[in-house]
Amino acid sequence: MKSALAYEWVRFSSTRSVWILGALAIAGSAAFAWAMSAMMAATTQLGSPADIADAATIAATRAPLAPAVAGVLGVMAFGQETRHRTLLLATLVVPRRQVLYGAKALVTAAAAAILCALCLGAALAAAYASLAGTGTAAARPDALALTGYLGQTLGWALLGLGIGAVLPQLAGILTLLLGSALVEPLIARFAGGMSIPGVGSAADLLPFAAGASLVTANESELSVSILAESGELAPALGVAVFSVYVAVAMAAGLARFRQQDL
């Protein structure tokens, strides 16, 4: 496993698009947080340090860039290698495919965690800088929401890895991005009326909604009033549902990879 991890780390860190996407995600997260903080400051009375902390947390954790880019990086873990035929080389160096798959998952997760931390850092810095104009002292951001954002990002990365092992790169990226931004909201619109006793809306059980519940479960008054967020799964249930989707995607990816002719 150590050698497989070393292979995967050199492969990952020497792929140009990884750095480009990472830089875009960090810059985009900062810009998103800046704009959202400014919008909240302009529309809402942020009178206490706790309000400032809430606003900064919301601004930093509602940007979809870190999870989306982590998902794309997950898809690329297989997609890039398939496209350039280096996956064959990888299996020659590490012939135990489950070991190679495990190494890809670990490196992708580690990279997603680093990316998420950098995006959060940049977004919080931008949000606090934007909110400094309100003249109110700031408190620390909500650690639970930040942890949830990290979990959501890791989930997207591993979901992407599983999808990338099953589908070609472009199809995998489109599945992930259009699935979250277009397909799932459409399904949610139809499923929104369906209620499951003890759970809530059936729409909350959809994969990306379940992932989002990791961030929004600890809803503050500000998030309810500004973003009209409500009705998400309870944190534990959200983690469980999202984990099932990730586990299914990962298992499907491993099954496909183990049988794949290269």
């Binding site: 050199v10 792929t15 140009r16 280096t86 160096v93």
Partner: peptide, 24 residues
Amino acid sequence: LDPNMFYPGRSARKHLLMLARGSG
């Protein structure tokens, strides 16, 4: 098996380093 198994943006040295590290 194929001379075209490489990532076009990775230098030859990095390409071989990746394989060397993967092989211990």
